[in-house]
């Protein structure tokens, strides 16, 4: 009986998380139509979340980011990711090549699944992609 109640509670939490995520996606979509890509400011990187039996894997696309500047922090129910991006674009003219240096900040907030054990996460950077492994909490 306890097992069944725990299962139902987990299902309820899960559904609430999905609804919250859907609402945030709608908000993000509406907001991005106003601000992007015509305004300067932090860039919100693209991301994907994969669910495996024992963990979640979050891929955050941060091309040309300075890997030493990456921070990944847990803030309440969210994962907050920041990284500095440096782009040096060559501008070729008839006489010489010069470089324009542009800097921007990647900022991303991701709502964590309810059974994600974010304090046990580990991350690495590969080819300009931040790969975050978050184990699932045991017993949920």
């Amino acid at each position: 009986m306890d097992e069944e109640i725990r299962r139902l509670i987990n299902l309820m939490y899960r559904r609430l998380w999905e609804l919250r995520k859907e609402l945030e996606d709608v908000y993000e979509y509406s907001f991005s139509r106003i601000t992007s890509p015509y305004t300067r400011g932090p860039i919100e990187p693209l991301h994907s979340i994969y669910e495996f039996p024992d963990e979640y894997v979050i891929i955050v696309d941060i091309p040309v980011a300075d890997s030493s500047s990456i921070t990944v922090q847990v803030s309440g129910d969210y994962l907050e990711i920041k990284a500095r991006m440096i782009v040096r674009e060559a501008i070729e003219s008839m006489l010489h090549a010069e470089y324009r240096r542009e800097e921007a900040l990647y900022v991303k907030r991701i709502l964590l699944p309810p059974d994600a054990d974010a304090f046990s996460m580990r991350y690495r950077v590969s080819g300009g992609r931040l790969i975050i492994n978050i184990p699932k909490k045991a017993g949920l």
Binding site: Y29, S36, L46, D61, P63, V64, M85, V87, G127, G128
Partner: peptide, 18 residues
């Protein structure tokens, strides 16, 4: 140029995802 291509195609990817 993979990383720069990803940077340039970010907006198209967002539209395509929708």
């Amino acid at each position: 140029e993979a990383e720069l291509i990803r940077l340039r195609m970010r907006e198209l990817m967002k539209q395509t995802t929708r």
